Simulated scan of single mutants.
Amino acid sequence: MTWQEQRLPGEHPAVRSGKVGVLLVNLGTPDAASPTAVKRYLAEFLSDPRVIEIPQIAWQPILRGIILNVRPRKSAAAYRKVWTEHGSPLAAITREQALRLGERLAPDGVLVDYAMRYGNPSIASRLSAMKEEGCERILLAPLYPQYCAATTATAVDKAADSLRKMRWQPTLRTLPPYHDDPLYLNALAQDLSQQLDVLPFAPEVLLLSFHGMPERTLHQGDPYHCHCRKTARLLGQMLHRPELRIQTTFQSRFGPAKWLEPATDATLKAEAAQGTRRLAVAAPGFSADCVETLEELAIAGREQFEEAGGEDYAVLSCLNAGEAGMAMLEGLARRELAGWI
């Protein structure tokens, strides 16, 4: 029994303490591919003022009166196309990433768990569970290489909200954005090169498709657009494929506002119309395959490209829980855990 576990008669039961943890955080997913589950998920997601930067008094009537009565059915249909026996691909892959990272860090006594910013398991529930397991020091690791207020910042906000309710708070560190980190770029270059080499065709164009954001966020000071551009530029240099024309695009537009451009869907159609017949797409901003890559890019994107005259089309997998991606996550985590392990 350690000194932390010892207690005198009349004292409260011993509290576990002294451990170090890592909490991987991704965006989130509905609990099922049903309109009801998707509606619940979208209500939480689209009510976040970091995501929709419109005064809530104006936005909530639109959200509750229109969007949540229309969009869930369409989104549920997209989720059903990619749903697995283990549930949502994003949740299943993030769970596997946590498991494999836990195996890599187990010799150092580090506990690894995962959470979703929206949906389950929640950040609050996992921070609480890790604290109960004795984690006094936790590395919060948002799995977003490129910093964005609507992703990284809101995950940190939610963690802070959770700590606010705790009398005994664990100490938190936050994994910084790693858009230009050699560990990330090397993992991407290695993984994408292997995938490109085994394609049954030689692409003329490689689209690097990042999740879009309203253009106003760039003018308001969000570094996301610059981070995406820098990732694409450095990755293109590392791939070193002069025969391959690389373009950066942005996907998943939502609502009437002007979004970052060029748009992925419009670019797919334009490339095919201009004579590109062989094209590949990679999504380096996504740490795990999800509905945006598996349905929006792989299914809808193929239809857009082929209907406009394209022929050969492929969407490359994200790093997921593959060897290159896990080596990267271990390297990033160990660096941020310095002094704790």
Rank of each mutant, 00 (worst) to 15 (best):
A282T: 01
D31P: 04
E292H: 08
L175C: 09
L199D: 07
T293D: 06
V315S: 04
M326R: 08
D157G: 00
L105Q: 06
L244R: 04
R95L: 03
D157E: 12
G212I: 01
P61W: 07
K131A: 14
A76K: 01
W259P: 03
M116D: 07
H179D: 08
S75F: 09
S47R: 10
L206W: 05
L63N: 02
T248H: 06
W3T: 00
A263K: 12
R126E: 06
L90D: 03
A106G: 11
L127E: 13
L244K: 12
V38W: 10
L139C: 08
L235Y: 03
Q220I: 08
N69S: 12
G87W: 00
G285A: 07
L127T: 12
A232H: 05
C228R: 06
Q251R: 09
P200M: 13
E44P: 01
E133Y: 15
M130V: 01
A266N: 12
G65Y: 12
P256Y: 15
Q97D: 08
R216N: 09
V205G: 05
A266S: 09
A283I: 03
V82H: 02
C318T: 04
N120E: 09
C148W: 10
L183K: 10
G322L: 11
L172G: 01
R137Q: 06
L279G: 01
G212S: 08
Q56R: 12
S34Y: 05
C290P: 03
Q169D: 12
V20I: 15
R335E: 13
L244C: 03
S122P: 03
Q6V: 07
I67D: 06
Y144V: 06
L206H: 03
S17L: 05
A327L: 14
L192W: 02
E132Q: 06
V198S: 14
K74C: 13
R40A: 13
D222R: 00
L68K: 02
E336D: 13
L218V: 08
Y118F: 14
A141Y: 00
R335L: 02
G331A: 04
A77L: 14
I52K: 05
R253H: 15
I138Y: 04
R334F: 13
I52T: 02
P214S: 13
A314Q: 07
T94D: 10
Q169R: 11
P55Y: 04
A298K: 15
K81D: 05
A153N: 06
I138R: 08
T217L: 10
S128W: 04
V25E: 12
S125D: 07
G28F: 11
E136F: 05
Y41N: 01
Q194D: 07
R104V: 04
G65T: 07
E311L: 02
Y224E: 13
P35Q: 13
P223H: 05
T231W: 10
A77Q: 10
Y118K: 04
G325Q: 04
V198Y: 00
G255C: 09
L63W: 10
R245N: 04
V22W: 02
T2N: 14
R100H: 12
W83H: 03
E261F: 00
I54V: 13
E132W: 09
A273F: 14
P170Y: 08
